[in-house]
Every structure is written in C-alpha cells, then in structure tokens.
Design a protein around this nucleic acid. Structure first.
Length: 220
DNA sequence: ACCCAGGGTCATA
DNA sequence: TATGACCATGGG
C-alpha cells in the first residue's frame, strides 16, 4: 500500500467508528441505483425518494416504461426531485442506453474501463454519476469523488483541492488499492459526515478526526 | 427570506 | 481551459 494509504485508512476508521455502517446504496436493484444516481444530482436524497416512489406507484421503474412514457408524465413523476425537465431527459437517455446495450445484465459483463466510457457518453451522466453507478450498481472498485470528498481531504491537508476529478479519483484508488467494500462505505461516510455540522468554529483537522466540532462548511 | 442539496450541460472568451 | 448561466423542488 502507498504512503497515503495508511492515512486514508485512519480517516476511514475514524469515520466508521463514529458514524457506523451505512449500507449504501439505498435501492432494491442495480437499475434503481442508476435512476437514483441521476435524480440525486445536486439534490437532497429525501427528494429523490419521493420521485422513486412515484415511479414505483405507476409501475414505471424500468427502462422500457421510462423510455415510452410521455415527457409530461415522466416530468410530473420526477417533480419532487427538482430539475424535472432536465432529469426526465437524462433518465430517458440513460434508459435508452441500457436497452440498446441489452439490459443491466449485459452491462454487468463489461469490463470496467469500457463500461465507464460508455456511461460517460450518455447525456446527463457526468463523472460522479457514472462512478456512483459503477460502484453501487455494478460493484466495481471505483472511488467516487464529490464536492464533500474534495473539501474534507483538502481541509485535512492531504490534497490541494484544486485537482481535477480524474486526478483525485486515481489518487484515492492508487493509495487505497482496489477495494469495492471499502470504497462503498467510505463514500457513504464522507457524505454522512458532511451533513453532520455544528456552528461553533471553523474546521480544523481535529474537528474531523476527533469530532470536537463538526463545522465543515466553508466559513463564508 | 436566504441557502443549498449525494451535478451536468451548454454558451462564451 | 475556465468561468457563468441555467435547471427547480423543498427542507432548514
């Protein structure tokens, strides 16, 4: 393991002890993970759940139904998750990709690099959404980078925060080694940690690692 | 009333 | 390559 690996695992252990097992991704199928990954873009998960409940209520949580649904219907079902016009389009393009590829089962047989490239080629699927899908739907060892990840490790002084997405992702992956279960839990813990804020003082390293204070916002 | 959520695309310079 | 505008609901 690389030098940063030990430090990264120490942070993980701290978060895991403090917040416990997260059991992500909350979904009943790989396809549901894919849908949730698009719907949660810049949106609170509680709102996404309502949209997914709507889709289930009309028996349309599958690629065929979503592709065939009229835009106004799909948009109405997605309304609670925000950006409903945009997300209806993105969901359609993702579902068309799934169908054109022969379904989720066929996708799960693809090697990770080509699957990742194909996901990124879908309109509305960017790096984070693609990596959510790769890790949580297809159980591939891909470390998900989000704004929380960049902010936390920047404040811990382990990265500058100015790195590009790919650079940061490869840094985590090479430091930790390929480990699906670890990546799964780690990303979940980073997200949970970010929500756990106090208003007392700006973040310092002990804030994160010793939980004296959990004010992780940007102090603006 | 303001801020921001488990981002991404597109137009501009 | 790098900003800025835009998408839109709902909870704190």
């Amino acid at each position: 393991m690389k030098p940063q690996g030990r430090q990264l695992r120490a942070v993980y252990q701290h978060l895991h002890r403090h917040y416990g097992e997260q059991h992500w991704w909350p979904a009943q199928s790989g396809f549901e993970v894919m849908v949730g990954a698009v719907l949660t873009q810049n949106t609170a998960w509680t709102h996404v759940e309502k949209a997914i409940i709507n889709l289930k209520a009309v028996n349309s949580l599958d690629a065929e139904s979503i592709v065939l649904a009229q835009h106004r219907h799909l948009a109405a079902w997605l309304r609670p998750s925000g950006y409903f016009n945009v997300k209806a389009q993105r969901l359609r393009s993702l579902c068309r990709f799934v169908l054109d590829s022969g379904g989720v089962e066929a996708l799960s047989a693809m090697p990770t690099p080509s699957l990742r490239a194909d996901l990124l080629a879908v309109k509305g699927v960017g790096p984070e959404t693609a990596d959510d899908i790769l890790l949580y739907a297809f159980e591939r060892p891909v470390f998900v980078i989000d704004a929380y990840t960049r902010r936390l490790f920047s404040r811990l002084g382990m990265v500058s925060g100015e790195e590009g997405y790919e650079e940061l992702r490869l840094w985590f992956e090479s430091s930790l080694g390929a480990d699906v279960a670890l990546y799964n839990e780690y990303h979940a813990l980073i997200v949970v940690q970010a929500k756990d804020v106090c208003k007392k003082r700006p973040l310092c390293e002990s804030c994160v690692l010793q939980k004296r204070c959990a004010y992780y916002s940007d102090g603006k």
